[in-house]
Design a protein around this nucleic acid. Structure first.
Lengths: 152, 152
DNA sequence: TTGTATGCAAAGATTTTGCAGCATC
DNA sequence: GATGCTGCAAAATCTTTGCATACAA
């Protein structure tokens, strides 16, 4: 995984080149986002950011995450019925396996699947722009070894 | 694709066996749902149903589609940023390829992908309960031959 | 008749935006 | 000092539910 510092610099560069400002709030939000667990909801990011600066508002988190997503530095997900979650876009493409028992999210990637879906799209006359592949299932190990819970 | 009539009978049987009622509204909603295009939003279903019976309310469509989904006769989807869409569960499992230009939705299935994802989950110690695989892309043919628009 | 269903409207939940004051460049 | 940013609150969406009335069995 890329260095969080590198992502912060990329964010700053993105803002600067667009004539936007790298404010204290945006830095704090990006920091907690890149240094914490993946797949965070806006409220989770807000809580983490407020630990650094209590006055930060939800709208600022909302708009900052939109900026990060537009800059290609964060990815938006909507797993199951949940609200939007953000994930740092700091490594290669991957898909997700979601435990229906504890909510734990495992990332995976599979070249065979990737190649096949290109082929399928091609046969249907399509050029792939992006895709989303989520597997929902249950961990076979009991007790479930994944401690993270779907929060918020 | 299964006969729409068959699905209506299954719905009626499901309701009856649960002590629920097969009302005019439920019949109308199921009829338009099974005889029309796939992947309809609740408002699209409402419009179609109101063409048959103008007094039908949104809440009735909402609750009826929930019933159909619980009965396994309809599938809920949430493509991209859209609201929920329903699809008749009247044939084998398949995934979706969504045109980012016109919103047209093509169904596909690929045994290689299906088999690989079982394998991936197994390697990670998971049993697959369900999955969702959506490819977003652009149709290479110009003009786009798909006339259906993402409505509502 | 009796319990369920309906339609309306209101409540919830989440996402998005307007705006007055504030901060950055 | 101008322009963009923040935090608040309100608006906009979409989903879900309470309730009085209507209806199916």
């Amino acid at each position: 995984m890329h260095d969080a510092e590198q992502r912060l610099r990329q964010f700053e560069a993105h803002l600067t080149s667009a004539g936007l400002r790298y404010t204290r709030q945006r830095r704090v939000i990006a920091e907690v986002f890149y240094s914490s667990g993946r797949h965070l909801s806006l409220n989770e990011i807000l809580d983490l950011a407020r630990a650094e600066q209590a006055s930060i508002g939800f709208a600022t988190v909302y708009r900052t995450m939109k900026l990060l997503a537009e800059a290609g530095l964060a990815l938006e997900h909507r797993f199951g019925e949940d609200s939007v979650r953000y994930e740092p876009a700091d490594h290669d493409h991957h898909d997700h396996l979601i435990c229906t028992r504890c909510g734990h999210i495992i990332e995976f990637e599979d070249d065979v699947v990737e190649a096949r879906q290109e082929q399928v799209a091609k046969e249907l006359g399509f050029r792939v722009a992006s895709h989303r592949h989520e597997i929902y299932g249950e961990c076979l190990r009991v007790p479930c070894p994944h401690e993270q819970q779907l929060a918020d």
